[in-house]
Amino acid sequence: MFNNIPPITRNIIIINVIVYLVSNFLFTGLYDSLVAYYPFSPLFRSWQVISHMFMHASFAEPGGLMHILFNMFTLFSFGPILEQTLGEKKYLILYFLSGLGSFFLFNLWNFIEVQQLVSSLESLGVNISEIYSRVSINIAEYSTFHAPNQEAQGLSDQLYTTLRSPMLGASGAIFGVVAAFATLYPDSKIMMMFIPIPIKVKYLMPIVIVVSVYLGISGNGGGIAHLAHVGGALVGWILARIWKKHLYRFN
């Protein structure tokens, strides 16, 4: 059955599984190098813009295995149809541009939050360079600062955590795939967990996006990069809208 999956989708799944196994059981130090940190964090490296798309929550973390299983199952469910519809080249472009859109929107919001934190901390007399220097050491225990008051301490810890918290996973790219599917096949019905009836994707996708925007902006995301999902979905929707006009021109 696996051999019947179109090549691009199949190879993306294989690469994700290989990276997961290698980074969890052979070279665990790869995690810090391949996940994506905030671009102005001392821990950021240029290749993380791409490599984070193939990283998933650690096997040792609660729900770590489910992270990659859910992502790969979703890609397996929607990817083959789109790959056959768009062709390998456009499908590959869709996948990686959605992943990049995910990274961009998530870190655009991070940038706004970091600038607000820095401004507040500077007004309180906190040495920002001390926080950045401790981030470069990359040891969680170093997050206690000599802040002038409790407010400054809390903001310092918040900035430190933001600079050290990575994004990882194929979810942003996969959200782009799902959004493109919803754009090209809006009347298709799918079943969702905890929802016992099939729902057309043209109704379900906007609900998912609105909820993701709310959770991402409100900070109630529970450790999930919801705005990354929105960024990927936005790119997928835009590309599908562009390609849809010419998709059947020669048929």
Rank of each mutant, 00 (worst) to 15 (best):
M1Y: 15
M1Q: 15
N3V: 04
I5P: 04
P7L: 03
P7C: 01
I8Q: 06
T9R: 00
I15R: 03
V19F: 09
V19M: 12
Y20S: 00
V22H: 14
S23F: 09
N24Y: 10
N24A: 07
L26Y: 13
L30H: 11
Y31R: 12
D32E: 04
L34V: 03
V35A: 02
F40N: 04
P42Q: 00
L43H: 01
W47R: 09
V49F: 11
H52D: 08
M53H: 09
F54Y: 10
H56M: 12
A57C: 00
A60Q: 12
E61K: 14
G63L: 15
G64L: 09
L65K: 08
M66F: 08
L69S: 04
N71C: 09
M72L: 14
M72I: 11
T74W: 13
S77T: 14
F78T: 03
I81Q: 05
L82S: 01
E83W: 04
E88W: 15
Y91G: 04
Y95W: 12
Y95S: 02
G99A: 02
G99Y: 02
G99L: 01
F104C: 08
L108D: 01
W109Y: 10
F111Y: 12
E113N: 15
Q115Y: 10
Q115I: 12
L117Y: 05
S123G: 08
L124R: 06
G125E: 05
V126L: 14
I128F: 02
Y132M: 06
Y132W: 04
V135T: 01
S136Y: 11
I137M: 13
I137G: 08
A140H: 14
E141M: 14
S143I: 00
S143T: 00
P148M: 00
N149R: 09
A152G: 09
A152S: 10
Q153F: 11
G154P: 06
S156K: 09
Q158F: 07
T161E: 13
T161H: 13
S165M: 10
G169N: 08
G169A: 07
G169E: 05
S171E: 00
G172L: 03
F175N: 06
V177Q: 05
V178P: 08
A182Y: 06
L184A: 03
P186N: 11
D187E: 03
K189W: 01
I190W: 06
M192N: 09
M193D: 12
M193P: 13
P196A: 09
Y203H: 15
M205A: 02
P206A: 13
I209K: 09
I209R: 10
V210C: 14
S212Y: 11
Y214K: 05
L215V: 08
S218Q: 01
G221F: 01
G221P: 01
G222T: 06
G223R: 12
I224N: 11
A225Q: 03
H226A: 15
L227I: 11
A228F: 01
H229L: 01
V230G: 00
G231A: 03
G232N: 11
G232Q: 10
W237G: 00
L239F: 12
A240Q: 04
R241W: 10
R241F: 11
K245E: 14
K245D: 12
K245T: 13
H246P: 04
